[in-house]
């Protein structure tokens, strides 16, 4: 059974159809790509999956349960992690603190009463899990530096790590390579591959970087003007003439 199923998702803004009955599915442990030119509705679709926008029609189900009316933060608790196109870190905090707070959010326990009783401090287990993640991503050397002083590439890894700390079953990545150079993109790709391999996390990748998509995913969906124009195995889709015209132009 598929982990995430979007069916007939439609979204209109002031009469303009941004998404026209888009359907997409991601299987358990699968790496899937979603590509499309600017203004194709990728971000709109992404926001519909995350609950930031409510679709006018269509459903989104995750692990068999309907997500349509579930608020953003509850979706995270259900096991959907995400990263941001324009990096969104907790300014003023270190990577370690990012991971600790995400671990706490995952556990979902604690609250004001526990805090008032002095029981809100970082636990041994949270500390260890954060340390583990820092090592997995090779962030040890910068673990205790404030994120605003770190490079974009590192910041993206912190985002991925923060999402992984919530132990998601599905990771949604919104243009993770945007603003990264070749070396940083390579590190990211390697990290994603190992995450998928070792943790079995399913990944939906929304991306511009054709090379990255090709090297990473087994299946790809292509959006153009809010319509799904192609989907299937990566090699097949990139061979498709309509896709080449709409998206790749004369590049490839």
């Amino acid at each position: 059974m598929s982990l995430l199923v979007a069916e007939g998702v439609t979204k209109k803004f002031a009469g303009i159809t941004a998404l026209d009955s888009v359907s997409l599915d991601v299987g358990e442990h699968e790496l899937v790509g979603l590509i499309g030119p600017n203004g194709a509705g990728k971000t709109t679709f992404f926001n519909c999956l995350l609950g930031l926008l409510r679709p006018d029609a269509g459903t989104v189900t995750f692990a068999g349960s309907d997500l349509t009316r579930v608020p953003v933060h509850r979706r995270a608790r259900l096991g959907i992690g995400r990263t941001f196109q324009r990096i969104e870190l907790f300014v003023g905090m270190t990577p370690r603190e990012h991971f600790v707070v995400a671990a706490r959010a995952r556990a979902g326990r604690g609250g004001l009463v526990a805090d008032l009783l002095g029981r809100g401090r970082v636990t041994r287990e949270e500390h260890d899990r954060a340390q583990e993640m820092l090592e997995l991503l090779g962030l040890g050397p910068v673990a205790d530096k404030k994120v605003e002083g770190l490079s974009l590439g590192i910041g993206r890894l912190v985002e991925v790590g923060r999402a992984l700390m919530t132990e998601p079953r599905l990771l949604l990545l919104d243009e993770p390579s945007s603003g990264l150079d070749r070396a940083e993109t390579a590190v990211l790709a390697e990290t994603l591959r190992s995450v998928q391999r070792e943790r079995g996390t399913a990944i939906l990748l929304v991306e511009h970087d054709v090379d990255l998509v090709r090297s990473l995913v087994g299946r790809v969906f292509v959006l153009d003007f809010g319509v799904l124009i192609a989907s299937g195995r990566t090699e097949d889709v990139f061979a498709d003439a309509a896709v080449r015209r709409a998206y790749l132009g004369d590049l490839v």
């Binding site: 509850r74 941001f84 969104e88 907790f90 995400a102 959010a105 985002e159």
Partner: peptide, 9 residues
């Protein structure tokens, strides 16, 4: 970051 906070639950 509010959006990121919501994204981790």
């Amino acid at each position: 970051s509010e959006v990121a906070a919501a994204a981790i639950g």
